[in-house]
């Protein structure tokens, strides 16, 4: 009764049951899993805790990723956030936190795939920064994660979340749509406005390729988490301003999937195109692969 396959069905069900996007997602999960409400809530609350812990760990100035390409950038951004800057305090905090989770992820730290590990910084960046700067409660934060989950579920049902299948637009693009919808939810926007924000965020990232240097989830992934989080927050503000996406969310999701289908395999997480085959990347890849090669037959 609470199952939805796309944005239109999500809006209709919210209206039919007179509930918001979070409550509908929660009931949908209860129906699907057969678990009681509290058990599902606890799982999501634990997700929020893992996200917060990852931010704290990732902000360390001494962090170094497994491949050695990144680390310490979240801390740099946090320091600038405390000074005079261009984007404003909250935006810089969002970016700093997104970088923190992403850098912690690259050091094989524990994170929440949101929806994937490569794009794991965007959603916590926005939710945790808004919780702090706008005094939202822990309960608000958990609810926003459910709202984000509804968007992720729609994309997973109708397209893909895998970079190997749809490129970075499927990972960071989906994360941006989820985070933008969650930000609108936190600000009191209705389900339609959340979907407008998700559509605007994903549209802005259509065509983004997955081109990891040496196959590592480090470059360009980590900084992309930072800039994409900024995109998501901007999209949320656009939707809250009353701007509508001319292309509805469901059609944007469909467009994303079709673009992924057209993408060469070289641009889908194989490290065979884009940034991954620039001279700088190839120099690094050769050096890294010869330095660390356990028994591959």
């Amino acid at each position: 009764m609470y199952q939805f396959r796309n944005g239109v069905e999500l809006i209709n069900l919210c209206k039919q049951y007179e509930v918001d996007i979070c409550e509908l997602m929660l009931r949908c999960e209860m129906e699907e899993s057969g678990w009681p409400r509290q058990q599902i809530w606890d799982v999501m609350e634990n997700n929020l805790q893992v996200m917060q812990d990852a931010i704290i760990n990732g902000l360390s100035p001494n962090l170094k990723s497994a491949g050695g390409l990144i680390g310490g950038n979240a801390n740099r951004m946090r320091l600038r956030q405390e000074q005079e800057n261009l984007c404003g305090k909250t935006m810089l905090k969002v970016i700093a936190y997104a970088l923190a989770v992403s850098e912690f992820n690259a050091s094989m730290g524990k994170i929440v795939a949101a929806p994937t590990a490569g794009a794991s910084g965007i959603l916590p960046g926005i939710i945790v920064a808004l919780m702090e700067d706008k005094n939202y409660t822990r309960e608000d934060g958990v609810k926003a994660l459910f709202a984000a989950g509804a968007i992720g579920k729609i994309i997973a049902t109708n397209a893909t979340l895998s970079g190997a299948e749809g490129g970075c637009q499927a990972e960071c693009g989906s994360a941006a749509a989820m985070a933008a919808a969650a930000a609108v939810y936190l600000e009191g926007g209705d389900v339609e406005t959340s979907l407008e924000a998700a559509a605007i965020a994903l549209k802005g990232l259509l065509g983004l390729v997955c081109d990891p240097v040496a196959g590592l989830v480090e470059v360009p992934c980590s900084k992309r988490n930072g800039t994409v989080a900024a995109n998501a927050l901007a999209s949320a503000d656009m939707a809250l301003a009353g701007i509508k996406s001319y292309i509805p969310f469901d059609e944007v999701v469909d467009a994303m999937y079709r673009i992924g289908r057209l993408m060469s395999a070289d641009l889908r997480e194989t490290a065979a195109g884009g940034c991954a085959i620039t001279p700088t990347a190839l120099r690094y890849a050769e050096q890294a692969l010869t330095a660390n090669n356990p028994k591959l037959l």
């Binding site: 992820n105 094989m108 524990k110 994170i111 929440v112 590990a117 480090e218």
Partner: peptide, 9 residues
């Protein structure tokens, strides 16, 4: 989960 990749890890 533990990073760095949901599909690869």
């Amino acid at each position: 989960m533990v990073g760095p990749s949901s599909s690869h890890t």
